[in-house]
Design a protein around this nucleic acid. Structure first.
Lengths: 184, 184, 184, 184
DNA sequence: ATGTAATCGAGACGGTACGTCACGTCTTGTT
DNA sequence: AACAAGACGTGACGTACCGTCTCGATTACAT
């Protein structure tokens, strides 16, 4: 597919419309037709450039926030605290929450999209965390497991709708993980 | 609705058919019509007793496995190890994996169903774990957070398709959590 | 089927409800379930005694008006005028109109019911007219055709919704037919 | 609705399928789904262009036969005889009979469709007859009534399933009407 | 007068069709 | 060639009724 002729106007309108509708509608009503109508675009223009609704959502998500880097002040606790607090803040924000729930729905049903999501969004985010952890952990420690331990609790509470996603919980989860990350 | 006239035959056929189809079909093809056809039942009989496809899936899931209790041998590590190994085993089994992914899809889109799922399946399971933890943890510890720390890593790897769900990972995750659960 | 045990209460309620609903609802909404609900009767009680909705309507119709006899004053014109005027009056009355349109719908689709309708309602009515005509017509005249000529115009205008069903039209149609019925 | 994009292929297939099914099936089985299936067309394509099953049937009918004109040889009897004979022939033909009974069912239940039927099919046919009658009748005669008198008998026998629809009956009905149409 | 069997109100059941929605493909001009 | 527009074949939705089938509860007849 020759992308040189692609209309940037249409691409932007589609991703913008998707973001707006994610915030406005329950996810099952976020149809391709709704996106096309809101974007003032033909359905074919969507299907020409994306294989599925989920792929559009993923691109719309990527358009919003690039994976950030973690600071390294030497104080792991201090460096990680904003990470976890930021996570609960994002999972509490209606738009970010909407995007993430949408992605969760899609990746459970579409392995190809799951792969895309992992490689373009998830793994870079985890790599940034892992990079910061790597230096601080005892040699031989399993960095991947460390990331899981750090983020798993917050992610689980959010995914299962268990509530309690506050800054206090973020700090407590951090302390719990640090028992493993920084023994003694 | 008077349930006394309800056909046990139809109810069982519906839940059984749902379980079979979960194992056979990609989830988006698990339609109410497919369930009705497989069960030899009219669609109305499904809609009469369940408000949505997700509610049927939840009941089919509950029909399969009741929440189990945890043993208490006094050795927390020994008692928890089969729990985590069992979790990765279940998340690796095609049928249980299919059911769980289905529930994940549904609860992200239907808060009422999410509530049902939590109260009837999730919280009892967590309560069983929490009960075993309660006695072993230092006084004042946050039992809920302890459960999150224990199960979060496994759950996250599964939900995001990160792979690596082996018995070894289960054991490693347990050890990591124990750093917090059993300090020293 | 032993009719001795039949509940007269239920039978009356069904036929009454049918008449009420014919007047209240567009015919496609006159369902067996609606009749049963209005009559406070189980559906089975209807199906036990009537083979179809149309049969119920026919019985409800017969319950309302028995075929009348025609007077014979010796003056054919004077004897027939109230017949035709009565016809347009009935076809203009909402309830009678509703019943008749219902029967028209049913007999076009159900030959067995059409036969019932003819034998129990239509032919007796026509026979009454024919009896009055028989004496007045010239010998050898086709009485059946005479009845058709007399009633056909009014029936056609009504069945096809052509309008113009007034007492004046009734009289004019009578005069037109009399040109054949009473030559000279 | 912009008709320029309408698929002539689909339109033709739908009307053809309707005609075939009218001849093959009892009318209550002539469902929109059956038409769509036979025509190889989506249901929505039918609902996009017609408001109801009856409207499709009307269009299918109009596709078959345009209202013809009556000859004027100066001999009214000779000009009308083929009209009535043609009418009984049509009402005896299974396909034409099927179409007409279908229309009768529909127009009794749907006033809007009845209006369509009248204006697009019935009134033009009647106007053709009226035009031929107008010149032949005595001045001041009611042409509409004349048409009713001519066609009413045949129509009534057909609508009520009274039988006897033969060429002989057509001729006899013509003679009876002529007693009024051509006095003396 | 009393058991017993048919009828009753109620409504669940397996079905069929409804009319609608959205899918992903296609066709038709326009830019 | 990509675009906006939207018709197309397809398939599922959730609802309405169909005619049949259980369920007790209630008659009314035959013992």
């Amino acid at each position: 597919m020759n992308e040189s002729r692609r209309s940037e106007r249409a691409r932007t309108a589609i991703l913008t419309a998707t973001g707006e509708l994610i915030a406005e509608l329950p996810y099952p009503k976020l149809t391709v037709e709704a996106i096309a109508a809101r974007a003032g675009v033909g359905k074919q223009t969507i299907y020409r450039w994306w294989p599925s609704r989920g792929a559009v959502v993923l691109d719309a998500m990527l358009e919003r926030d690039a994976p950030a880097e973690l600071p390294d002040t030497g104080d792991l606790r201090a460096d990680l605290r904003p990470l976890l607090r930021g996570a609960v803040a994002a999972l509490t924000d209606p738009v970010a929450d909407g995007f993430l729930r949408a992605m969760y729905v899609e990746i459970q049903q579409d392995p190809a999209l799951a792969r895309e999501y992992r490689e373009r969004l998830l793994l870079p985010q985890r790599a940034a965390v892992a990079a910061r952890l790597a230096g601080a952990l005892p040699p031989g420690a399993d960095t991947e497991l460390a990331v899981d331990l750090l983020l798993g609790p917050v992610q689980m509470r959010w995914a299962l709708g268990l509530g309690g996603l506050t800054a206090e919980y973020a700090d407590a989860a951090l302390e719990a993980a640090l028992a493993f990350l920084l023994p003694e």
